[in-house]
Amino acid sequence: MTPRVLFVCTGNICRSPMAEYLLRHRLRDHSDAVSVSSAGVAALVDHTVHPLTAEVLAERGIATDGFAARYLTPAMLNEADLVLGMSREHRDAATTKAPVRWKRIAVAREFDEAIAVRTADLAATRFPGDRNRPELDIADPMGRPREEFDRVAAELDPLIERLADWLIGLRGQ
């Protein structure tokens, strides 16, 4: 079975699609390794990615053609094996929509920390540290200058690299 990863942010045009496309790009040689998608808790439904998100990704050789923002639904959460929010707010909104899936919902940074201490699994139940630390959040670049979009990409790059390596290793088990 192919694991399904769902990234979540607010409008589904900046952070979560950036994470989605970065992970897809990182897994391009393992296209069957994982299914990757994204959605937003207050999505700008059917919008393309933000122009600055598209620019940042294009500079990495990643095209976002055909992207359409989606509103996060309980069905999406029930189908996902791993849900990674860009902030605590997104984790909490996802958990509210699908409370029985709480073990599979985390902030991207807290799941990254679980990978680092080797406690991550597709039904993660333990996360290191305080789950309500503000530093877990990746700040929204919406309405901000290009540098903020670059910052988001710089924050996501190492998280996505470790997540991709973990997912590839998972397939090898």
Rank of each mutant, 00 (worst) to 15 (best):
R4S: 13
D137C: 11
A93K: 15
A68V: 03
S37V: 10
T64Y: 07
L82A: 14
E155I: 03
S37M: 14
R60V: 00
N132A: 14
H90D: 06
Y71A: 07
I138T: 01
G85Y: 02
H47D: 04
D81E: 10
M1R: 15
R151C: 02
K97D: 08
H90G: 02
L72T: 05
A94L: 13
P3R: 08
T53W: 09
F127T: 13
M1C: 09
N132F: 07
M142V: 14
L6M: 14
M1W: 12
P99H: 05
D130R: 08
N78G: 03
L122T: 06
I168M: 03
W166H: 05
D112N: 08
A63H: 05
F111H: 11
R109F: 06
V117C: 15
D121R: 09
R60L: 00
N12M: 08
A33D: 01
L82S: 12
Y71F: 05
R162S: 10
A93M: 14
A154K: 01
L136C: 09
D32V: 09
D65E: 11
K103C: 04
R171K: 06
L27S: 00
E155D: 09
A120I: 12
D165V: 04
T96V: 13
H47W: 02
V49F: 15
G172D: 09
